[in-house]
């Protein structure tokens, strides 16, 4: 009876092949999962990290370039201001000398008379 039941169980529990359709479903689900997890895989995350790092470096370089340009503009403005002050000083000096010379000339004429 025991051997008979063993044999009957083996026959009753013979494996069942789900068919080629099952294989195709597995292949389709794999393809779907690959597409979905492209950005969540380590490779996708590496890409994301690299892009983020590149964006940070680019931002830093842009800010640095902007700061350097501003400093250069400041230096240029300072230079122009100094030049303007120098020219103004020269003009004032010239005007002073002219006024001073005229004043001395007038005083000499008055004392000679």
């Amino acid at each position: 009876m025991s051997n008979h039941l063993d044999d009957q169980l083996r026959n009753a529990l013979r494996p069942v092949d789900p068919g080629e359709e099952f294989t195709q479903h597995v292949v389709q689900r794999l393809a779907h999962d690959k597409r979905r997890s492209r950005w969540s895989t380590p490779a996708g995350l590496q890409w994301l990290s690299a892009a983020l790092a590149a964006a940070v470096v680019l931002g830093f370089l842009t800010a640095h370039a902007w700061q350097v340009r501003r400093e250069q503009q400041g230096l240029e403005a300072r230079k122009q201001l100094l030049e303007a002050l120098r020219v103004t000083g020269e003009k004032l000096d010239l005007a002073y000398r002219v006024v001073n010379d005229e004043a001395h000339g007038t005083a000499g004429e008055n004392s000679g008379a």
């Binding site: 494996p15 069942v16 092949d17 789900p18 099952f22 294989t23 597995v26 292949v27 794999l30």
Partner: peptide, 15 residues
């Protein structure tokens, strides 16, 4: 190769 593995073992797993 993976598909071949599926074909080989699907009977056992599915059953």
């Amino acid at each position: 190769a993976f598909t071949a593995l599926v074909r080989k073992h699907q009977r056992s797993v599915y059953s």
